[in-house]
Design a protein around this nucleic acid. Structure first.
Lengths: 221, 221
DNA sequence: CTTTGTGAATGCTTTCACAGCA
DNA sequence: TGCTGTGAAAGCATTCACAAAG
């Protein structure tokens, strides 16, 4: 029953809205870079691929950042959303499992430009410890504890094979990491206070296959 | 009560359920490989990381494949779900954009083992056309039309930079591809009959960052 | 007159709780 | 008895439609 004397963004934002805020932020960055100063909810909605009623409802959870009859100031709204998400600061991140996918993640420039900094790459396989990926040494998994402490890492990325993922998650949790992005195709068991998000490439394809099957089934002409 | 003479999988399955079927399938494969013959909804739910009421409700949309008092036959249910999703057949897939991520996807063994076959790798950059990735030649993007026709490709994967993604999507649609998995951080505009699913790595991290920010803020005890 | 912000209505999803069957 | 399958209830999310504000 935490009595929060809340500073101001204590409104609780629905999960569905939280998941869309980064999309709005991306659209705003694009608009800003193209020199757009002001935009209506309709324009931003199109850029973000949602409908404008939903966009306005989502933004209303953050506060009243628009002007009636005019729209939103692109840079102002961009800042407010970035602040709400928490990407005005930089988040240190470790990636564990430097196979093909781990390397791709390490090289992904989109992280750095969006508030994340990869501080270490770890792999259990000693043969990889020679390598340098994306300008970082690949280090032994055992270094996790020290790295997590030194850099105050709160977010970990798991890109190992499925069998290793639970062990890695356990070790991350033991090191005080409380947010995990899991690319391994397995369910992770973690304590309640730890957030896990999963990205499963083949699950996404399977969802597409389901709908595809339905299409070719029904109409054919 | 519905008197269904219907061809059999004509029930319409809620989208939220469709998205979980691949997770159940994966859990069933694991159970099957570990020699489990029968499992209760509770056991399967734990393996899939959901609660058992949700699992049973989800399965009820497919039909009555369990036995009261006993549970589910692992292999039988596994087959029924695979059939419902449409992964008893093989789906030919093309990957466009063979950078770090595209290479990782091309090498990902989880596709082949789960009903998908990568039939071609395409890239617009001529410098890449020498390379062989995952046993496949990297071919010019212009070959898309012919490849799509020859292999009856229905599913395309976009792993290009954001600026190229819409063009690639347009070309895919023109070639008759009706399902797209998009890894580029941009919104795609496609006709209604085309399904798009997106995977955005930095959006996932941003969602974690939002919750992380809340944790370190509020309670400490 | 334009466009936001938001109650109210609608539509989905999850959870409950128990009847029905093995 | 034990566990599935499912109506009914509760909880979320989206959409509507309009009052309020500039």
């Amino acid at each position: 029953m935490t009595a929060r004397t809340s500073p101001e963004s204590a409104r609780d934002i629905p999960e569905a809205t939280v998941a869309r805020l980064p999309v709005y932020l991306r659209a705003l960055v694009t608009l800003s870079e193209s020199g757009t100063v002001t935009c209506s909810s309709e324009e931003l909605a199109v850029a973000a691929g949602v409908n404008s009623a939903k966009l306005r409802k989502d933004l209303s959870y953050l506060g009243s950042y628009g002007t009636r009859g005019v729209g939103y100031d692109v840079d102002y709204l961009r800042y407010q959303i970035a602040r709400e998400i928490g990407v005005t600061q930089d988040w240190p991140v470790v990636i564990v499992g430097i196979g093909n996918l781990g390397q791709a993640l390490a090289n992904y420039s989109g992280f750095r430009s969006r508030g994340f900094r990869v501080v270490a790459l770890l792999d259990a396989n000693p043969e990889r410890h020679d390598e340098v990926v994306a300008g970082l040494d690949v280090r032994p998994f055992d270094h996790l504890e020290q790295i997590a402490r030194d850099h105050a890492v709160a977010i970990g990325v798991i890109a190992t094979p499925a069998v290793a993922a639970q062990d890695v998650a356990d070790r991350m949790v033991a090191c005080g990491i409380t947010s995990i992005l899991n690319f391994a195709p397995t369910v992770l068991n973690v304590p309640d206070q730890v957030d896990v998000r999963k990205v499963d490439l083949s699950i996404e394809l399977q969802i597409l296959a389901y709908h595809e099957q339905r299409k070719t089934h029904g109409a054919a002409t």
